[in-house]
Amino acid sequence: MSLRIVVCVKYVPDATGDRQFTEDLTVNRDDVDGLLSELDEYAVEQALQISENSDDDVEITVLTVGPEDAKDALRKALSMGADKAIHVEDDDLHGTDVMGTSLVLAKAIEKAGYDLVITGMASTDGTMGVLPAILAERLGVPQATLLSEVKVEDGTVTGRRDGDSASEQLQASLPALVSVTDQSGEARYPSFKGIMAAKKKPVESWDLEDLEIEADEVGLEGSWTAVDSAAQRPARTAGTIVKDEGEGGKQLAEFLAGQKFI
């Protein structure tokens, strides 16, 4: 038996950098260093663990939709241990929103062929966290999302979803889509050997034509939402800071009373 896993990974601006919008109100991806979204490392890690715990012949493909530099994210995933990569890149993709991105990902996943799709819980730049559900809808497969524990056995995926009011045990038949949280287990660091091996692993490049998607279905023009304005939040006015010299708790209580919290 074989098991084909596609892991969706996103290349994002470093959250610790000074993230800004560009003039057309899209995320500025030039002035802040990019990297493989940390939350997608968890998805790669779970794919590797599923592979390691399986008797099947598992093939892990990492897939990204993004600019030229997004190849860095693919390289990192390959150096962690994924087998091959697909990079969907096209000038017409600039400014694509979640509906467009999910369309491109769905077509690419179908073209690649899959039994299991794994994504992160959310991207660290957009942080919508809705792409996995949309992808499951578009692919027409079960969604087992926000799992903090995942297992694949005999064509069935099971996992634990820790929700607001309950922790749920989920079960679905393959093909299926899974998203994993940052509670699913620390992602491994690429080894030196892994980094060297990654250089020889295949990275395919596809554009919109390869996926039979028209330019007006994606990009800023094809976007289903419009951002009218983006304003930097005014810096918070500097607060009062006191050093505790034995009365810090009482001083704080005085402040809270003044603000009518007590």
Binding site: F21, S223, V227, D228, R233
Partner: peptide, 13 residues
């Protein structure tokens, strides 16, 4: 961006 920006948007489709 970790609440450092405020945006206003609409659904256009």
């Amino acid at each position: 961006f970790a609440a450092s920006f405020t945006t206003k948007s609409r659904v256009s489709k």
